[in-house]
Design a protein around this nucleic acid. Sequence first.
DNA 1: CCCCTAAAGGTCGTATTGACTTTAAGTCGC
DNA 2: GCGACTTAAAGTCAATACGACCTTTAGGGG
Lengths: 238, 238
Amino acid sequence: MGRGRAVVSLTVDLVIFTVRAEQLQVLLVERGNEPFRGQLALPGGYLRGAETLEEAAVRELWEETQLDGARLHLEQLRTYSDPRRDPRGRVVTTAYLALGADLPTPSAGTDAKEASWMPVRDVLEEGFLAFDHGVILRDGLERARAKLEYTSIATVFCSEPFTIGELRRVYEVIWGIPLDPSNFRRKLTRAEGFLEPTGKFRTSTVGRPAALYSRGSAPLLMPPFLRAQENSLPSAGT
Amino acid sequence: MGRGRAVVSLTVDLVIFTVRAEQLQVLLVERGNEPFRGQLALPGGYLRGAETLEEAAVRELWEETQLDGARLHLEQLRTYSDPRRDPRGRVVTTAYLALGADLPTPSAGTDAKEASWMPVRDVLEEGFLAFDHGVILRDGLERARAKLEYTSIATVFCSEPFTIGELRRVYEVIWGIPLDPSNFRRKLTRAEGFLEPTGKFRTSTVGRPAALYSRGSAPLLMPPFLRAQENSLPSAGT
DNA sequence: CCCCTAAAGGTCGTATTGACTTTAAGTCGC
DNA sequence: GCGACTTAAAGTCAATACGACCTTTAGGGG
């Protein structure tokens, strides 16, 4: 070993985020096989013959969680290549980040694995994930947090039409900090192409009816919405 | 094909940028073998047995260009996996972005390939690179441009100590737009931890002597320095 | 019909920015 | 030695963006 071309397997792992019950949640599966049998892991699987990594990610999304890739935001996160990351041998994995609006509880899928939503904060604070999936999850969270600042991905966490309050809760939950409702609305309503007013309103159980919006055409939030500062865990909370 | 686990080779490709002669330049090699023999390509090579992709990147950096990875900024760019990207078969590549200060003209290295600096603008406008390296180069340029906005990587293009004028030229060359010298200095000198004054000055052939700075400790530029707008090619030029 | 709540909208002082001007400190040509 | 020239450094000023905070609006519930 060391000199020749490495013999490697390539896998795809998915960091799937959604906001439900006022929390950022990640979809995890319980492993049915060794290694790490019984432990929680990111859903994923091997790259097949003639597909791209992105196609493999969409396929795994469906096979393992019955989620439709077309309804999610999907982007490549990073490739992890530590030779010791998988005890079975040389497995390099490319992680993808998938974001969606209030996704359904996954029916187990064709694979017999148990899939369930878990609060990201709990997983990062207490849980231990298989392989290096804890690191991957952390990287995914940081990517999502950063992209809230300068892109319009926050809207993919809301099903259309949505209110500004719902959108604000997305930011608060992912950044783990409270935001001033008034300044938040001023900021986002003035961002060109971010929100598309529908002219309709939604009356909830309490409070004044909120205007409903759909996603605007701009992929970037200009000027960006900067966090006050870094917050390494989702709101901490001892 | 299609059903089973893909049999893939993994390679590393390098997008190496430096600023020389008032231009952003990229290091390219002329391919000595088929496919694409004689054409320009990014330097790179196969992943070996027990190394990470990052270690492979550093190794290739040295073998192909005699550049020392420790003296460069190196970060993972993206993984490219189109099954048809390499006519020889299934080759997935992870691209790394390497940035350095006025790097030397590479001696060909142990590999017998001809390595040389080329202006990025020219390559993107006229040149055709092997494989999908044109796409990778474009992605690398966009990454570098974006990171100038909110990190302090611009300083790695300058050898220490450097003047604010030199730093400004880095921004101008990579973004392809002129910047107001006065506002530029105000912005960067007030960014906490970005520049470390040395107290020394450099007298050039013309003009008032410029204060010399070294890199500060802050990895991020806060608040960010936003480009006026997108500029898909490096200053265009007709 | 009053209270409570959240949405919507406004105020105000401060910080940041872009466009521009002024002053400083060197070299070069004569 | 001196003025022209060049770039660095510093300042001005109006427009904008932002954080903190307040007021008004429009529903539901008791």
